[in-house]
Amino acid sequence: MNTQDNLKRHPGEETGQDLNVLALVCNWCTYTAADLAGVTRLKYPTQVKLIRFMCTGMIDVRYILRCFLEGADGVFIGGCHPGDCHYLSGNLKARVRIKGLRPVLEMAGIPEQRLRLSWIGASEGKKLQEELTGFTSEVRKLGPASFRQMHLV
């Protein structure tokens, strides 16, 4: 494990080991966009691990909490644009849930910048790249999350 000082200099930034960014994305839009980004050979940070869900509406807030408690430095949620959800309104449900979750994260000392909700349509491979790159560098500014090494109750 790295010491706090080492982490400040971002060792492993090249190899993608300095940060854990989890991207919970919906199957129909954002995952398809990621696939498209791959097809069109767009690169996004290696720190990002994509986890595919059928719909952002099925993302239980507990999954997000679990991500942070298990040491994620950032959690990115990508879904269809409002009105575009394959299941009509899953993305709107995700939006409300995340709105309600923010104060909980604040109480847990997790800065709100570590959780981002973004709408990325199936043909927006470019936007996926920009969003993930932007989010990763924002998370990098905050440094590694404390829960990563802390022994939790």
Partner: peptide, 23 residues
């Protein structure tokens, strides 16, 4: 992490309760 506090997942428990019931 070298050790594990038991019972586990109590932070998760309290945060879950917050997430479910704070509203």
């Amino acid at each position: 992490k070298g050790s594990l506090r038991l019972p586990t997942d109590l932070t998760m428990f309290h945060l879950t309760r917050l997430a479910h019931m704070a509203h």
